[in-house]
Every structure is written in structure tokens, then in C-alpha cells.
Design a protein around this nucleic acid. Structure first.
Lengths: 361, 361
DNA sequence: AAGCGCGCAGAAAGCGCTTGCTACACCCTC
DNA sequence: GAGGGTGTAGCAAGCGCTTTCTGCGCGCTT
């Protein structure tokens, strides 16, 4: 049915070995032979069979990218930058790899399933993005899978995920981490320095590493201001932590809950920008002005944050930079950092959604 | 190196054919033999080689999804729904396909390159999403590529793209189209019925089909209101069309240009929601209130639109529904609609960013 | 003039899997 | 008891490519 190497070879009057060599350019072929082959390829509209090539050469054109949610610009931005780095136009012999984007929906099972699928395809590389679910069983299962992938030559990169130490002798995984803790800390410090003391925290799902890190940063800032656990204000802050999902609706609901627990909150830090939008919506619906009555802050600095009303104070994570770096690492185009870990700094972006608390009771 | 079928066969004391049959479950194997094989698979942590399987069985686990920009939620939403439909957990023998998301950046060359790459991989299906670049040469090139794919058994689906008739006898491509024209028309009618007459139009790149369709809908509404070309108001409307990209910055710049051309515009329809955010920002920066001074409308109804300030009036496209349908079609799980074309209706969402024009001069 | 190296092309052995066909029991049936 | 199903398992031939190794013809050295 389809045109094969042999067809091209027959047409050019050479052996299939020669055609293969012309196509791959990795072996000397006489000028006029090469021309003849090229012409035959053109005339027959020949396209190599990637699977056969992969099988014979033990290579792969695929790079897996696991994300929690493609529809979330957080992952979209990473994926986009990553893909630009590994994709067509790349330096590879065949002109780049294809990104297989796998939407796990945050489900540990889906994560493992996709890792198996990628192992089947003998992917050239695998990038896991976004926070990990912190469950020992699951972490171990993922580590085992990654160890096997790494051992069999697949480049494994974690992007925005806590580093993972693999069992003993297996290959390396390299990590591009985000400074979530530092960013969260600076954000809360910003609020504290504005004079806020009753700060609500609408954070992500308990089991996610990202949630934990951001929360740790938040608490570290409080503690540094003498608001650690045991102090009155500190214990109040603990009460003002509500867990939810990384979506707008969670932000909305959590805010209502927060206002119920303490109608006097003057500031709310959200799990991310999307959640912050939900927070803002809930506050508005409750008749509170932002930042007049309550200051609100997000996280990630997604593109829409600057257009929110008011523009969101947030913590910028250079996601494209992170995605690009992950892409270079997974392609082996960039040497892994010492220790296999590089951390992407985060930056506080102060905008209009935060202000000093009003002096009403 | 890696564990192969033969290794498993040896361990289970059977032939590799039997192992293959157990794995695929497509041939009777005696109960205890099956058990033995399964145990051997477990013990050796065997994972089939997808490439070898694909080569031997002439099948593929890959479905290509071409998008203009993964980071844009418009495409993210489609991709996400599509992936849920084709992905792990699906009904296929091996449990679903992998989505290869290809970011074309709107570049025709990248589009062709990716199609070649997908043809190489003998993808089981290909979905092209988003507006097409309307250039005869390019359209013909794409049509030729798709014809070859379709002929060789790859399911080809267009989602949010104008239908394409392939040369003569080749396979079918099925299309899931959006009613951009109708949506745009209803949107402009909404503005007209509010009393607006000087309506600016910040639209997308000239060469894109989506741009053309939305513009046609816009103009049809004007014409139906006696504001066709030749009439004073109609010609003014033509002057008030500015082309730009589908990004926020374009919306910002185009708005400034629009205000220069006619400082008295009372409403602006944007190419999409993202552009609308830029429009809003520019208006605010110019001291115009929304919708007090100028009404603004978007398109697509992306999730953030409801959180914009003010909440955007827009045209909702059920992107997830579209993506899911495209997914089912590309998997062959749903019969193609008669004529190979199904159209997704769009819905006008009236929110706070549009209001009657103020009666100032 | 004999010997060598070199540049290029082909033969053929896989890569790891699927699958059509054959083979062998074993149990019926007449 | 011989012929014929039936139910399982194996053999072996590919799938379309890459790559090692062999081979051939030439021009060059000694």
C-alpha cells in the first residue's frame, strides 16, 4: 500500500541500504547516486515509516509531557515553551521531536498510566510538570517507573516538581524547581508590611507539594513577624487557612467560608491567580471592595492577572523560561545542573489588588 | 537490554506467539497457560514495545492535534476535552491513544512540517483545530497532505476550521465547525439593538478563516440594519475595522488606532476575549469607562471572561463539547455526520461590558 | 607489475512484535 | 475403531527500516 524504502530503491536503481543512507546522511554516497535517490523520493512522495525506523535504530521521536490540565494556562505556557524547544526546527537529525502532552487531571493513576504508555513508546524523554501528589505509595510508584525509564536511556525531567531521588544505581532525573516557598514568603511579607494582620489563606489541595511549599512560605513570613503558632495572631492565621482546588469555584467557595470564620479578614492570599479571581468575585458579591476592604493576592502571574479588576498583586514564575529549560534538558542540549537541580526564582509583582488595610474595626 | 516478549516466553515456558496472544486477548489461550504468562510478565516488569507492535500490526497509538497556541485557553480547552475522549481509559484494545499536541504558532510551514511528522509516525488520527490560513497555495498543500493521510487510513478531523474538499477519490475528512458567522452577527445585532451606531471592530489577522467569518457576521448584522456599504454609517463602520493578532497587545494597540480614527466610537467588538481584555485596558488608559463611554464585547467566552472588569459580553463557543466530539470522531467512536460536517452552535452571552450608548455627542 | 587503500554500494541480519498456517492432542460420533 | 471436529500451541514469515560486514573497482605507491 504505502510507499516503502524498497520502492524508492527500485525506482532509483539502488539498494534500500543506499536510500536509507541518503535519507540519514550518515554515510558517504556518491553525488549522482544521491541525486537519483532524492528524485525518486520526490516522485514517489515517500515518507519514512517512523515506527520502523525507531524499531531498527532503537530511537524515538517522542517526548512525553505530563501536565495536570492543558486548559490551564499555567501548564499551557510551560508546554508551549517546551515544545518550541524540542519541536520541529530543532537540531536533531530528523528535525526535532514530537511532544506528547498527557493530561493527568491531577490523578495519580492517570499519571502512572501515562508513564506506562510512554515507556511503551520508548519515549526519548519525559517531563513531569506541576506539583506532585505527596503520597508515599504513589511517590514510590512514580520513582520506580522513572528509574526504569531513566535506566533505559529516557531523559527524565521534573519541572515545577520537587526533586526525587531514585533508588540506587539507576539513571539521573534532573529537576527544574520553582521557588514557591520564597515567593509565598515575600508575598505575605508584603501584606504584613502593609499592615495586615488578619490574613486569610485560600490554598490548594492538601496533598500537593506546591500547596505545601506555598503554605510553608506563608507561615514562615508570619512566624518571622512574631505571628507563629502559639501567639494569638498566629493561631488565628492557622484558622484562616482553607484548602480547595486550583480553580475559580474553589476560590469563591473558600472565600465565603473564610468570611464566615472571620468577617474581619483584611487580606487573602490565594493558591494561584485563577483561585484569586474566584476570591475577588466572592468578595464583590459580598459587597467588599478590593483592595479597600480586603486585599487579594494571587500566584503565578498568568497573563490575565494584569487585566483582572483590580490588577492582581501576585508572584511571577517565569514559566516559559522554565519550560524552555526543561525542553533543553530533556533533549540533552543543555548539561544538567550540578546535583541535577536548578531552581527558578520567583518575583513579587505588586499591583492594585493589595493596599494597606482600612482602619475600620 | 530491555525485557522482550521472548524473555517472557522463556520464563513462562511458552512461545512468544502465546505471550502476544495473552497480552492482546485476541486468541484463545488455556486458563493456566494464561496465568503462567501473566505471572512472568509481572515478574519481569515487561512492557511491550509500542513501536514493534505498531510496525507488526500496522497500527498506531498516536493521534496528532494541531493547535495554534497551546498556551491559549481556547486551544487548551479543546485539547483537554479531546484528550479525555481518546486517552487512557478509552475502549481501545490497548486502552486509548496518546495525543501529540503540535504547536504551530499559526505558521503554515509549521503546520505542514507537523503533518509530515505525523505521517511518519503513521498516526491513527489527526485533528486540525482553529482557523485556517486562507492562502490558496497553502490550502492546497494541506489538502494534499490530508488526502494522503486519509487515504492511508488516518482519520482526519477539522475542529473549528472550515471544511475542506479533498481531491477526488481520497478518504474523507470530517469537520466540526463553529458558527462564527452567526455568533458574530447576533453579537453585533445586540449592540445595534442597544442603540450603538459607531461600532469599532478589532478583528484578527486578515488571512485567517475565523477572522473572515466573524467579520462577515458583523457586516451582515450592519447591513440588515441598513448600514451596508454605500450608506454613510456603513462606510464609517468599514473604516472602523482594524486587523491585529489574537493577543492582548493587539487589542490594546488597535483600540488606540480606533480612537484616533473616530474618537466617538461607542462600542467595540473584539476578535476574541483575550483581545477584548486589551481593548478594555486601552480604553481605561484613555480614561473611557466601560460600558459607560464605550461598550466592549469579546468572543469565545473563555473562563476568565466572566471575571474581567466589567464581565465581558461575548459569544460562547462550547469548546469542550467541540473537542470531545472531535475526539470521538477521530477515534471512530462516533459516526461522521452526513456530509462530513457538523456545526457547533454559538450563544450570545450578555454581561456587564455592554450597555446602551450614553447620549453625549 | 604487484599490492594496497579508499570510496562507495549491496547483501543480509536483525530490531520486537503479530498472525496465518500447521501440528498435535483429545474427545466425539457413527 | 477409524474419521473428524475442537481447542491450544508453535513455527516462521513478515512489518520497514538501520547497520555491519563484505565486495568491487580504481588509482596510487613501491
Amino acid at each position: 500500500m504505502a510507499v516503502t524504502l524498497a520502492d524508492v530503491a527500485a525506482r532509483a536503481g539502488v539498494s534500500s541500504a543506499t536510500v536509507s543512507r541518503v535519507l540519514n546522511g550518515n554515510y558517504p554516497v556518491a553525488g549522482n547516486t544521491r541525486e537519483r535517490v532524492k528524485r525518486a523520493v520526490e516522485e514517489l512522495d515517500y515518507v519514512v515509516n517512523g515506527q520502523a525506523r525507531a524499531l531498527a535504530a532503537a530511537t524515538s521521536d517522542l517526548v512525553g509531557v505530563l501536565v495536570n490540565d492543558v486548559a490551564d494556562p499555567f501548564f499551557g505556557l510551560i508546554a508551549s515553551a517546551l515544545q518550541a524547544e524540542i519541536g520541529a526546527g530543532g537540531a536533531g537529525p530528523v528535525g526535532g521531536k514530537l511532544a506528547v502532552v498527557c493530561n493527568t487531571g491531577g490523578s495519580p493513576e492517570a499519571e502512572l498510566t501515562y508513564l506506562t504508555l510512554l515507556e511503551r513508546q520508548r519515549a526519548a524523554g519525559v517531563v513531569l510538570t506541576g506539583g506532585a501528589v505527596e503520597d508515599d505509595t504513589h511517590t514510590a510508584a512514580v520513582a520506580a517507573r522513572l528509574a526504569r525509564l531513566a535506566t533505559s536511556g529516557t531523559h527524565v525531567v521534573l519541572c515545577g516538581r520537587p526533586p526525587l531521588t531514585l533508588p540506587d544505581d539507576s539513571g539521573q532525573v534532573t529537576t527544574v524547581a520553582f521557588d514557591n516557598r520564597g515567593g509565598a514568603r515575600r508575598l505575605t511579607e508584603h501584606l504584613l508590611s502593609l499592615g495586615h494582620r488578619r490574613i486569610g489563606c485560600v490554598t490548594g489541595p492538601v496533598e500537593r507539594s506546591t500547596t505545601r511549599h506555598r503554605l510553608e512560605g506563608h507561615r514562615a513570613a508570619l512566624e518571622a513577624h512574631g505571628m507563629g503558632p502559639g501567639t494569638g495572631e498566629g493561631d488565628n492565621a492557622l484558622r484562616l487557612t482553607v484548602h480547595g482546588g486550583y480553580d475559580r469555584a474553589s476560590g469563591y467557595d473558600a472565600t465565603l467560608e473564610l468570611l464566615r470564620r472571620d468577617p474581619g479578614v483584611t487580606a487573602i492570599v490565594a493558591a494561584n491567580d485563577t483561585v484569586a479571581l474566584g476570591v475577588c468575585a466572592a468578595l464583590r458579591d459580598q459587597g467588599r471592595s478590593i483592595p479597600g476592604d480586603v486585599s487579594v493576592a494571587g500566584f503565578d502571574d498568568l497573563p490575565f492577572s494584569v487585566d483582572a479588576a483590580p490588577a492582581l498583586t501576585t508572584v511571577r514564575i517565569p514559566l516559559q523560561e522554565a519550560g524552555a529549560r526543561a525542553g533543553r534538558l530533556v533533549m540533552g542540549r543543555q548539561a544538567p545542573p550540578p546535583g541535577g537541580l536548578s531552581t527558578i526564582p520567583t518575583e513579587l509583582m505588586v499591583r492594585a489588588s493589595t493596599a494597606p488595610p482600612s482602619n475600620r474595626p
